[in-house]
């Protein structure tokens, strides 16, 4: 059976009819085509599907969309700015990931970027341990993590300049 859902995604409101057992990840990707969040494991273990719900980062593969009536979601698409000519400007975090070579296949990147964004929002000056804690549940098959930590450091530096 379908039920109504009012939800805000990247500052835009949606009034939808959804199936009751649709996950947030499936709603985002399959219905609304926000394909930033990725399905890595589908089991909460890899972090590729992470999004921010009312300021808190969570794993969208293990949340029902129905749970989120009235909530506000930020996906990686919501971190960019688009000007009136349609030019897209990446966020500082995204730029730092590119500059530090922290993106290889890119599958894990939206999760890491979202986790970093949420970290900066709750702690503008994170130390090494805070960063490790925020990213510890994110898996990357390609980079070996070093470049990812450099990217987060660089983004923090740029942000606090």
């Amino acid at each position: 059976m379908s039920i109504p859902l009012n939800i805000t995604i990247n500052n835009q409101s949606y009034s939808l009819e959804i199936e009751e057992d649709t996950t947030l990840l499936s709603l985002l990707r399959d219905t609304l085509h926000f394909t930033g969040p990725k399905e890595g494991c589908g089991n909460g273990e890899c972090g590729a599907c992470s999004v921010i719900v009312d300021g808190i980062p969570v794993r969208s593969c293990i949340i029902l969309a129905a749970e989120l009536e009235g909530k506000s979601i930020t996906t990686i698409e919501g971190l960019t700015q688009t000007d009136e000519k349609g030019n897209v400007e990446l966020s500082e975090i995204q730029k730092s990931f590119i500059d530090e070579g922290a993106v290889q296949c890119g599958f894990c990147t939206p999760g890491f970027v979202i986790a970093t964004e949420a970290l900066f929002n709750r702690n503008p000056n994170p130390g090494k341990e805070d960063i490790e804690e925020a990213l510890s549940g994110h898996l990357c098959r390609c980079t070996g993590y070093k470049s990812i930590f450099s990217a987060v450091d660089k983004a923090a530096e740029r942000k606090n300049k």
Partner: peptide
């Protein structure tokens, strides 16, 4: 326990 995002839920 788990990781930050899991602990949030």
């Amino acid at each position: 326990f788990g990781c930050y995002e899991i602990r949030n839920r």
